[in-house]
Design a protein around this nucleic acid. Structure first.
Lengths: 365, 365
DNA sequence: AGTCTCACTTGAAAAGTTTCAACGGCGCTT
DNA sequence: AAGCGCCGTTGAAACTTTTCAAGTGAGACT
């Protein structure tokens, strides 16, 4: 059983107390923990007993100070309540587990000030590496951290300058896929929903949408933009209100939402207002979070390989931390479109199974 | 601009380097950081300049080793991809921010081994306090950690022994609310969906459901249990399959799901199979996550005050860490029911607005 | 001129661990 | 009996910071 140390205070026993109680030197106790093969079985056993008797807990600060290495990675998430990012985190975790590193999650909640605070603390903590989906991918603070020696990789964004590792998905291409899909289905009035434009992902996705629209030779003004303040279900619902408020003949017959949360909110408002989806209004989302497929009318969405994103990012940061000759890389994944009921009307649906999701392959141009 | 230290290696400059470059003693540099009012403005300015010139980053391990205090809290979450827990985390964060503490999130993913690993590392890290939604609330490991001196509070579970602080919501009561609601609506065949029973929350919610059923004098065998392997959308869908496979006259007319993820999965399968919700099948979920309200048919759910849960837990752990005379407390919140379209058929719906969610007050017995 | 105060600054100890050169004893070999 | 190598153990230095008693010097007061 664990007992408190005999001393009056509540101080945890140190390696010194263990050494004294086990009648060995401090060095031996340390060896028991770090290189047990150097210690004779008898001594080792005695020391281990003493450690558990005393309730010894190794002091990580001291360990790290002396040894100079830490065993943790950190991921600074843009929005912990968006399942997309928790899935990325899961991917990171997988690789971290393999390498016996632990992962700390921090949430910047899209606020630069919070992000900065987290980064400062992580750097002071001398974590092995930082993964971050930054509020602003071009921030010079990121490079500074990397330059000072903490490996850092940008997740889900690319930096214009290639001065850092980054792992991302081609958002422009994703936007194109979405709109090409709608064009293929014959839609001629389409709305793109999303904002704020300060978020790079949003900009790129909408840009891609516009490109595809232009290339399909559709008139500029038949693609309208409904701005939102954030990428949330509530904002999606509010955009939906604006949409259903429009006169039926002016109203777009399809919308592309910059992420699935918006799409979910918009779907709900539209159904509540009596619109039929997809017949009156087709909806495409982005991210393919589980909730998109689980919606009552499963939502067509641009799928990003989020677990793979996380895994790759973790691999890169570990490489940067351990390999002497590391080159920065910009990895860009290609998204694909998962067509579901929110765009495929029953008559056009290629597969009879009502519940089935249809994975499109790489999209034909 | 930040420059690398002159020395060939990539070692970060230490306080000693700063002192040398600014021609002051080490103690003065430390004072600049920790008690700037003791340092003359001129010196302070010079030291601060030097720090930023050299790209000095304070070593948190050394600071913590010497000062003996840490400025971080940690929350070990049961399932980072369940929005309920990220909302609890947000509540914790709020309080942590106020006290200028930073919060690290760890994900045990419902696996004891991972949980144990995280706890061990956090204890070694000497964090200020640990908040945890444990896989097993009765685990003796939790008490041991608290006894050794790391303040620890259990979130969303109560310990049978009151040897730790805990903050939770009355799950039995929540189960009762759900089933009372269904009984009030006249349902006579009800299914409860959830598992595994090793999860305390699930046990309590189902117990509450049974109690309410018994008290309504409904026959035992008219309340059936559909077990699940986990509390996920996929498992909910699979339970839904079993449900729709039943002969219509034997099939329950309402289900109570142990959480909203199950309810979402089940809702989707039911709709896909052509059942009308709530007329053929009424559905009640648990947790009232945002996605429950955002579903195409908004789901009636038992609401827990999750932000408040987090805030309170954080306050308790901080109290335990700082106040000399702290008494362990078990705080139990009372859930309430949010009635929505998934149980209120159009004819019975009390409010005409199609999209509106109806918050029930404390439920009448 | 001597003493006192005050505002800053300094130097050294201390925190708990890791690391490594050195040591002691033991069994072998010659 | 002397020398050697080996195994297990030891002791001390080092990591970077905080803390605090003590020191310095300038000005004020008597």
């Amino acid at each position: 059983m664990a007992r408190r140390p005999a001393s009056g205070g509540s101080r945890l026993p140190s390696i010194k107390d263990v050494a004294a109680a086990a009648r060995v030197s401090i060095g031996t106790v340390s060896n028991v923990m770090n290189r047990p093969e150097l210690v004779s079985p008898a001594t080792r056993y005695r020391v281990e007993q003493t450690m558990s008797d005393l309730g010894f807990v190794r002091n990580e600060s001291a360990r790290q100070l002396r040894a100079g290495t830490s065993r943790t990675l950190a991921y600074v998430m843009l929005d912990a309540s968006n399942p997309f990012f928790t899935d990325v985190a899961r991917g990171i975790e997988e690789t971290a587990d393999e390498k016996d590193l632990s992962l700390f999650l921090c949430n910047s909640d899209s606020r630069s000030a919070r992000e900065y605070l987290h980064l400062a603390r992580l750097e002071q903590q001398r974590v092995q590496g930082i993964l971050i989906t930054p509020v602003d991918a071009e921030s010079p603070a990121l490079r500074q951290i990397a330059r000072r020696g903490t490996p850092l990789v940008v997740v889900d964004r690319t930096r214009a300058e290639a001065d850092l590792c980054s792992v991302s998905v081609d958002d422009t291409q994703g936007g194109r896929l979405a709109v090409e899909h709608l064009v293929d289905l014959g839609h001629t009035r389409v709305a793109v929903v999303g904002g704020p434009l300060s978020i790079g992902q949003v900009r790129d996705r909408l840009d891609g949408a516009r490109q595809a629209w232009r290339e399909a030779n559709r008139p500029q003004d038949a693609l309208i933009h409904l701005p939102t303040e954030a990428l949330t279900v509530a904002e999606g619902a509010s955009a939906g209100q604006r949409l259903v408020g429009m006169a039926a003949r002016r109203r777009p017959t399809a919308v592309f939402c910059a992420n699935d949360l918006l799409a979910l909110g918009l779907l709900r408002t539209s159904l509540a207002a009596g619109l039929r989806v997809p017949d009156d209004l087709a909806i495409v989302g982005y991210d393919d979070i589980d909730f998109a497929a689980a919606a009552a009318i499963p939502i067509t969405s641009v799928r990003q390989p989020r677990l793979e994103l996380g895994r790759t990012a973790a691999r890169l940061v570990i490489d940067e931390a351990t390999s002497a000759r590391h080159r920065h890389q910009q990895m860009i994944f290609v998204p694909d479109l998962v067509a579901r009921a929110s765009t495929l009307s029953a008559t056009r649906r290629p597969v009879a199974k009502a519940a089935g999701a249809v994975h499109s392959g790489p999209h034909p141009r």
